[in-house]
Design a protein around this nucleic acid. Sequence first.
DNA 1: TGCCAGGCCCTCTTTAGGGCCTT
Length: 208
Amino acid sequence: MERVAVIDFETTGLSPAMGDRATEIAAVILEGGRVVDRYQSLMNAGVRVPAHIEALTGISNAMLREAPPASDVMRAVADFVGDSPLVAHNAAFDARFWDAELARITRKRQQEFACSLLLARRLLPQAPSHKLGALIEFTRLPVAGRYHRALADAEMAASLLLRLEAELVARHQVAEVSHALLRTIQAAPKHQLERCLARHRQAAPADA
DNA sequence: TGCCAGGCCCTCTTTAGGGCCTT
């Protein structure tokens, strides 16, 4: 797979349209099947963290008072990932915050998101849950740190993505996994997954 | 203080409802 950036936001809530803001961002760069670079920062957007969110993430108002401005962090992380295709767990959520925070610094996303949650639903349908933590446990991947902190969650989503890539190659005989193929798979209706994968299989001797 | 959204996907569906995920 080409170079991709796996990102994760911590935020004050679920919806930027309702006034929620990002509090932490992490980006993990995958290249050649391994992590080659990382970025992580708390970010001060000048809003208060609700108590139930602080309990969930461990990110407090006191921590954010010491953090760099959200605008500085978004410029830095956008430059860090460049035009690499993006991946996130439940990407619809992270894409909304990514786009909303970029808009505040008058920048626009240039690349597409792929979603490890939708991919896991397709490729690991037998998992009891498709929450990030449940998938890490199900696949016996290492826990990278505290759940609901940006870098730990981004690292674990990156590990999961590599596992899904390996699954495509070993179990489904996909010749080459690209970000574009991941987006095709996640968007394929379940009953058409096999047909979708068949088009990307390595040429077997019987096919020659 | 507590609340809020939105897309995917299943089913006792499609003229809909509700669970799963993200914080």
